[in-house]
Design a protein around this nucleic acid. Structure first.
Lengths: 147, 147
DNA sequence: GCTGGTTGATTAGCCAGCTAAGTAGATTGC
DNA sequence: GCAATCTACTTAGCTGGCTAATCAACCAGC
């Protein structure tokens, strides 16, 4: 059982990897009854802030690629949460709208409550500091990719 | 363009979601030439610290489920990075070993270098503080799941 | 007003995570 | 010493991320 010192210091990357999976799994298990997942809830709450936008615009808001979004939209349309409407004036674009079911306050409420629970007991300034570190890591990655 | 205040404060969860994707994408693109991905490199480096362990043990070390690991092992065996050997004394278990190719220092070196680059310019104490916050979030999720 | 390039959405196919269920080998209890 | 249970691995199938390539509609320039 060798234990190189390097691993201890760079631990944060593995913590991030695991945390994301834990978040997803926990949310998905809880939201299954509503027919949602973490990713799909994000689509709904993001769309709720800006109904009528196109798929490309929504994908940009969510920072995911359009084929990824497309499958989620298909599922949400099939489950009656949102609607695709052809956008007049441009035959390529779809405008997206929530249905009554998709606009149901329960989803937003549920998501916000869970987020509050997940961050419980952590002072705002600690959250801000941690967020700053994560942003710095993101910038470092972008710098690397530019090389 | 409405902008509810709540979103600003809980931003960290989205940052985590995106950061993980950025890490994966950046690593995978760079490591493609070696036939590796971030997940597979993690399998190799974790196994390197403890050759001869079984799949279940390795899955526990990586904190992933055994079916997830199984597919990665299949791929790594196919590409000549590792070997499955039947473990004498228990016909159910496989012992895992690196091949010469898998033991190749380049992989470990490459991974460590990239990790250093990604964390460049961030003081250790900031990293530790951020890691602490992430751990707290992980504990909060586990507490929720226990309910 | 046609032609070439651009854009929005889709399709196809990959990787990596998961759960649920199946199979074969070990272990335990009677 | 056999039945029942448990364990390790596998199989099957879902979700969600990605890239590459296709198709249709739009737009620019000549």
């Amino acid at each position: 059982m060798p234990r190189p010192e390097e691993d201890q210091t760079h631990q944060i990357l593995d913590v991030i990897l695991h945390l994301m999976r834990d978040m997803r799994r926990s949310y998905d298990r809880r939201a299954r009854g509503m027919g949602l997942t973490l990713s799909r809830a994000r689509v709904l709450t993001t769309l709720a802030r800006n109904e009528g936008i196109t798929q490309t615009e929504l994908a940009a808001d969510l920072a995911i690629e359009s084929p990824t979004l497309k499958r989620q939209i298909d599922a949400l349309v099939a489950d009656g949460f949102i609607l695709r409407a052809p956008l007049e004036g441009d035959g390529r674009k779809n405008a997206l709208f929530l249905t009554d079911r998709g606009r149901d306050a329960e989803i937003v409420e549920f998501t916000m409550r869970l987020r509050r629970e997940i961050l419980k007991g952590i002072p705002d300034r600690d959250l801000d500091q941690a967020t700053g570190v994560l942003h710095q890591i993101t910038r470092n990655i972008q710098d690397l990719d530019r090389t």
